[in-house]
């Protein structure tokens, strides 16, 4: 790998795709895997980052954003997907577009068994609710997939989700006395 490839961060690819697509509102529930993206969104003049305390509020917020003419995107982790289910009916019924970027837990290398029930069924829940899902495992696929998901949401007035695999995002470290940071 070249130095450029070594230092390239796929989180920046997501941010750049959001800016290039004209995304104006990022609604999110904080997540370690999205930490850098959340910080960049807050720092950016092009968009407003809105922190909500539960994921269904992010869904409704983005419906309001589009009603008022703003494109939006939702950032969350897989455990939050369960919180969104009834509110997704708002998007389906009204055909509100919404791209979502989901960092996966409860799969590759997970220590915390409490993450596994939701992580293991995230895609199935989404698909039952009418969300089109794209799963990404390799950093080099992130940029294209994010672009495609945003395009599909806004060309199709529908919901799309990019599931960022735990293998890609990194496994949270658990150890007594540790701060529990993600490895990346």
């Amino acid at each position: 790998m070249t130095d450029a490839e070594m230092t390239h961060d796929w989180r920046d690819d997501i941010f750049e795709a959001l800016v290039n697509a004209g995304i104006k509102q990022i609604a999110y529930v904080p997540d370690a895997g999205h930490k850098k993206l959340i910080e960049r969104a807050h720092a950016a003049n092009e968009m407003r980052a809105i922190s909500v305390t539960t994921e269904e509020d992010a869904v409704a917020c983005l419906a309001g954003a589009w009603l008022g003419g703003d494109k939006g995107a939702l950032l969350m982790q897989s455990s939050g997907v369960g919180n969104t289910i009834n509110m997704l009916s708002l998007m389906t019924t009204c055909r509100f577009p919404m791209p979502m970027f989901v960092t996966m837990r409860g799969e590759w290398g997970e220590f915390n068994s409490w993450q596994m029930p939701m992580g293991g069924t995230t895609q199935a829940h989404f698909e039952l609710a009418g969300v089109k899902c794209y799963r990404v495992e390799r950093a080099e696929d992130v940029a294209d997939t994010v672009r495609a998901a945003i395009d599909q949401a806004y060309n199709g007035d529908c919901m799309t989700a990019v599931l960022l695999a735990q293998k890609l995002v990194g496994t949270k470290k658990f150890a007594a006395g540790s701060a529990g940071d993600n490895k990346q």
């Binding site: 509102q25 609604a27 509020d57 954003a65 589009w66 703003d70 708002l90």
Partner: peptide, 11 residues
């Protein structure tokens, strides 16, 4: 209320 937040931010 959360829908009104997104709308108020957009307008």
């Amino acid at each position: 209320v959360p829908m009104a937040i997104g709308l108020a931010a957009a307008q």
